[in-house]
Design a protein around this nucleic acid. Structure first.
Lengths: 250, 250
DNA sequence: TTTTTTTTGGTACAAAATACAATAAGTAAA
DNA sequence: TTTACTTATTGTATTTTGTACCAAAAAAAA
């Protein structure tokens, strides 16, 4: 092992004490929660699940669904539990966004929260699944009733930005669509999420060139024009290509 | 506001209770810490700051520098405090990576930790600044003495992956270099971080085409060949371009 | 059969990425 | 002073990729 430069122990900081020398009760006073930004897509519109709070603090306010983590619960599992209660689906695509830990972000005490974003095919999950408070609603992301409770405006904004970044660099868009979809539907999804138009012919070429879609033997039904072919996303092919250095781009 | 689909309140989950109805002492038992992955670059090598723990748990083990967050301390500030104690520099480039919250990740209790990565110009900071435990060392990232304490192997690996991603999409590489640098030095930095070679002429063209570097009137000194021009990174120009839709790409 | 709409395949051009050759500017040794 | 050597810098030719746009094909409905 190489050890080029040694920083000597010479701190004057009041904090430079090993953990174990400080009495536990002084530090183990944090609450920890998880807040979920659940995105869904329907009818060319990106939506997010919001709840209406039925209890203090912020009674009556709109908020992101979230909950305190139990002392014996992994935070990843807490996020899954919340999503399951909310949507009835247990294996959603889900990813951490950021941690929010300002001292005064929660009026009831020191609560640090981890943001998660999740992607749902709105058609697929059970709409009668569950919820907190007075109800759970799909809200168009352009019509969010601000301000949301706590620092949820901030948590939402950053989650959306992260989603918009992810969608260009990882094949996560498919999580928002049904199993079988047309290239036109995929394009509309991208246009809705990125607020940007694409050339139809070129979008199709780019996507197909990646070789991640399986062309099905089926076509659209009940449309009053030439029906489009249906495709499905091949996750295994993606994993294989990805391990060989391929990277998904827009 | 649009409210397409309403999820009715019908949960059977034992957890679906508003925060304020649950006794505080049951939930406010978490400790929260910050662990820093401090990257430095020297002599074409990427290094990371590790400490050697002088106390239990994991006494004698190598670990990432980190500390518990104080109940009245913002986590962002806690990270800054640790970096300041460690390097003597107060305004390092710093960014959150992820949160780690497995139930058993810390033997002393339920401690959730936020990972941060920071970038340092090794030449610039004061090597006698501070430290915990038995000492602080710059370690080549290819020679990390595994396993590190706690889940620090994991935290480090993910921080490195995030750095490798950031360096391609954001102009953070300059944080690892001195104020004034040559294009050759910049290229070597990229090659070291990404484990990949670049064509010298094309790398230069790509970087210069972005228009983010200021060509200085100075050249390299004390080299035994034709000295290269020195450049500096123009942060303001980047901000300006960025606000106009420009995005940095490798 | 015709109209309408959307899919699908193709082409022509511009821009960017890449490979590689040539020249310039310095040091160091003969 | 010359020559060899090393690295910086410029230039050019080629390939690849991105973009704009056109038109045929397919299906449904009138």
């Amino acid at each position: 092992m190489e050890e080029d430069i040694i920083l000597e122990y010479s701190t004057k900081s009041q904090y430079a004490v090993p953990y174990y020398e400080i009495p536990f009760e002084r530090f183990f006073q944090f609450g920890f929660s998880v807040d979920c930004v659940v995105f869904g897509y329907h009818d060319s519109r990106l939506k997010v699940l919001l709840i209406r709070r039925g209890a203090k603090p912020y009674e009556g306010s709109w908020a992101l669904p979230g909950d305190l983590v139990y002392p014996n619960e992994d935070i990843e599992l807490a996020a899954k539990r919340i999503l399951q209660d909310l949507t009835g689906v247990s294996n959603l695509y889900m990813e951490q966004t950021k941690v929010y830990g300002n001292v005064n972000r929660h009026p009831a005490g020191r609560v640090i929260t981890a943001g998660y974003y999740a992607l749902v095919d709105i058609e697929k999950h059970d709409p009668h699944a569950a919820g907190w408070a007075e109800g759970v609603y799909w809200v168009d992301i352009n019509d969010i009733p601000r301000p949301l409770a706590f620092d949820h405006d901030n948590i939402f904004d950053e989650a959306l930005a992260i989603l918009q970044h992810s969608i260009r660099h990882k094949p996560v868009g498919f999580e928002l669509l049904p199993e079988k979809f047309t290239l036109g539907e995929l394009q509309k999804l991208y246009e809705a999420l990125l607020n940007q138009e694409f050339d139809k012919a070129n979008f199709r070429k780019k996507i197909l060139a990646m070789n991640l879609l399986t062309e099905l033997k089926e076509v659209q039904k009940q449309v009053k024009h030439r029906p489009a072919k249906l495709y499905s996303f091949d996750l295994n092919r993606y994993k294989e290509l990805n391990s060989k250095g391929f990277s998904f781009e827009l």
